[in-house]
C-alpha cells in the first residue's frame, strides 16, 4: 500500500477569509510577526499502487477545483 498526500490550497490571488481571521487572532495573541495566514487542506489517500497520472486525474476531476485551487502531490511511503 502507498500513502499519498494531496495538499490543496486556494490560489494565492484569492482572498482566504478564514486565513485572514486566523491571522488576526494570532496577532491578538501577541504573535506580532504574523503577516499572513492561508489555510489549505490535506487529503490522505491510501492506494493499492501509486500512479502519478491517475492521482493527478483524481485531483483534477474531484479533489481540487482548478478555478480556485492549486494542488501538490506528495508520496509519503
Amino acid at each position: 500500500m502507498v500513502t499519498v498526500r494531496v495538499n490543496v490550497s486556494l490560489k494565492p490571488s484569492l482572498l482566504d477569509s478564514a486565513g485572514r481571521t486566523v491571522a488576526n487572532s494570532l496577532k491578538s495573541l501577541e504573535f506580532s510577526e504574523v503577516e499572513g495566514v492561508r489555510i489549505g487542506k490535506t487529503i490522505t489517500l491510501e492506494l493499492e499502487k501509486y500512479d502519478e497520472a491517475r492521482v493527478k486525474s483524481m485531483c483534477e476531476k474531484l479533489l481540487a477545483n482548478p478555478v480556485i485551487e492549486d494542488y501538490a502531490i506528495e508520496v509519503v511511503e
Binding site: L10, L14, L15, S17, T21, N65, V67
Partner: peptide, 17 residues
Amino acid sequence: LCETGVLPGALLKNSGE
C-alpha cells in the same frame, strides 16, 4: 452548476466569515 463547469467561476466563503 459552477462545479460542473456549466457556469463559470466558483463560490468561496463569504468575506466576512
